[in-house]
Design a protein around this nucleic acid. Structure first.
Lengths: 191, 191
DNA sequence: CTCGAATCGCTAGCGATGCTAGAGTCACGA
DNA sequence: TCGTGACTCTAGCATCGCTAGCGATTCGAG
């Protein structure tokens, strides 16, 4: 009896460790370095164990890391916006936090938007994904000229574009602050 | 003598074929299907021949496809903007052409911005990349509140964000037209 | 308490990947 | 005529994601 419980605890713990180590490895050396063999070695189990936890294989592990990322992004954005009464001020804080998050966790961000195939904008979308979007929408809503959803989508696209283009070296490294300020001006124009 | 010339012609032709077939294969079945073996088989040569043309291996081939894509994007954007006097009208045409291009060539677009590691915003940036950016900047310039470069960067980021988020299913499929219209409003606000 | 069944994790291996070493073949110039 | 150099091939390496099949451990029924 007690053995069963201990096993379940160990199993859950191992599950968490797989996700944590996958993320760690990715942030240290990039997703190319995250192989099932390396992952197995670090959790000190053999490869097939990974498939007992994630039948979908590596993709499912990356997706799990991505969901974790969305939860943290939502938290970071909420914390940044909290207490900002002035809409323009809130938008600025949101954008700043968003870009800071992407810059601080490039591999995590890449899993969230490129590597992982997550169901998005659908019924079975994981909660953290919805929550992150809700923060963006609610923050941008007061400044929305028309439909808040549309405005949020465009605002999010702008931030996402700045994050990815910047990270890929597609934009001059200096001037990041100017770009953010400019984007905020556009998005919060009609307070 | 003539043999040498013929060889050079054949070599150049083969070079083009490698890039063309890589792109073809990618647009048909995605970049995962573009393997050096398949590529070699389709050009009817052995694998090592690929490395004679692209010492950097697969990455360099993808980069070549990406450069081709930027040239075509620049052409498409120029054609769309041509003759549009009204700034807002030009911006709308630019955005529409940009998103249409990304939607029509998803694999190509992915090579341009995700797969390939191209030098961007640097001295040795390939000409087609610069040209594509110039079209965006010049079109958005009349509507720029401040620095045209910054405005163009933000505008490009918005379009890029809409393109990638849309393609990855991160945005509701309907409402794409609304989003574009809204983005154009924001970017061309101060005609 | 014993023993079959089920669960668990392992070793070993499959097909495929990007890439390269070495050998063989051909046209050219001394 | 024959050696040289440029080309292309076959064969192979290390690594990848993933899985079949086996041995060990634990549980529950008799």
């Amino acid at each position: 009896m007690a053995v069963r419980e201990r096993r379940e605890r160990e199993r859950a713990e191992r599950h968490r460790r797989i996700v944590a180590i996958a993320r760690e490895l990715a942030e240290e050396q990039g997703w190319d370095a995250v192989t099932t063999r390396r992952l197995a070695e670090r959790i000190e189990y053999s490869q097939p164990v990974l498939y007992g936890h994630f039948p979908g294989g590596k993709d499912e592990i990356v997706a799990a890391v991505a969901v974790e990322g969305f939860a943290e992004l939502a938290t970071a954005l909420r914390a940044a916006v909290e207490g900002r009464r002035e809409p323009a001020d809130a938008v600025r804080a949101l954008g700043s936090a968003y870009l800071a998050f992407a810059a601080a966790h490039p591999a995590l961000y890449s899993a969230m938007f490129e590597s992982a195939a997550l169901p998005f904008a659908r019924e079975d979308t994981p909660a953290p994904l919805r929550e992150a979007f809700v923060v963006v929408r609610d923050t941008l809503a007061p400044a929305a000229p028309g439909d808040p959803d549309r405005h949020a989508e465009v605002g999010w696209a702008t931030l996402h574009g700045l994050a990815t283009l910047g990270r890929a070296g597609r934009l001059p490294p200096d001037g990041a602050a100017d770009r953010l300020a400019h984007a905020v001006d556009l998005l919060a124009a009609r307070g």
